[in-house]
Simulated scan of single mutants.
Amino acid sequence: MKFTTVAVLACVGSASAFVPHALPAARMSARTTTMSAESPASRGDFLKSAAGAAALLGLAAPALAEVDNPVVPFLGGGDKIDVNNANVRAYIKLQGMYPSAAGKIVSNGPYSSVSEIYSIKGLSNEEKAAIKKHESRFITMDPQAMYTIDRINNGLYR
């Protein structure tokens, strides 16, 4: 279920808990008192109005939804990899990159350009060749804490 569907159901369900159940007229007059000259609204009327309000909220919800972070497509699920935010496992499918070159890339940085990767201390000639082979797949975006915090060890183990 989508979030908006769940939200609508939760609103209607919780609102219906506060509406008095329909009672026979004889029992209702003995158990309830009204503060106005009008007859009390029925449970059905209240549910209709609550459902209408929830529907309006559901229509407005997409406009209030947070747009995905622009970094997400470049964390390893697509053709391009952001060297400032992707974790070490993003390089696993790139031949010659994982784990040594990938570990050095994520352990250093941030990088303002992809060419800065070649200045990492301790990078072997084989690792530089692997990086050069896949360099067209790398991009640099602004580092974001929510992604850089687990770049080395993201808790995924074989």
Rank of each mutant, 00 (worst) to 15 (best):
P20E: 07
H21N: 08
A22C: 03
P24G: 05
A26G: 07
R31M: 13
T32C: 07
T33N: 10
S36K: 06
A37N: 14
E38Q: 10
A41S: 14
S42Q: 12
S42A: 07
S42R: 07
S42T: 15
R43M: 14
D45N: 14
K48T: 08
K48F: 12
S49C: 05
S49F: 10
A51N: 03
G52K: 06
G52V: 06
G52M: 04
G52Q: 06
A53R: 03
A53K: 00
A54F: 00
L56C: 11
L57W: 09
G58V: 01
G58T: 01
L59F: 12
A60Y: 07
P62I: 08
L64D: 01
E66M: 09
V67D: 12
D68N: 13
N69F: 04
P70H: 03
V71E: 10
P73H: 10
G78L: 11
K80Q: 08
K80P: 08
N84F: 14
N84L: 15
N84E: 08
N85I: 12
N87L: 09
I92K: 15
K93D: 14
K93G: 12
S100M: 13
S100G: 08
A101G: 02
G103Q: 02
G103R: 01
G103P: 03
K104D: 13
I105V: 15
V106R: 00
G109I: 11
Y111S: 11
S113I: 08
S115E: 15
S115W: 05
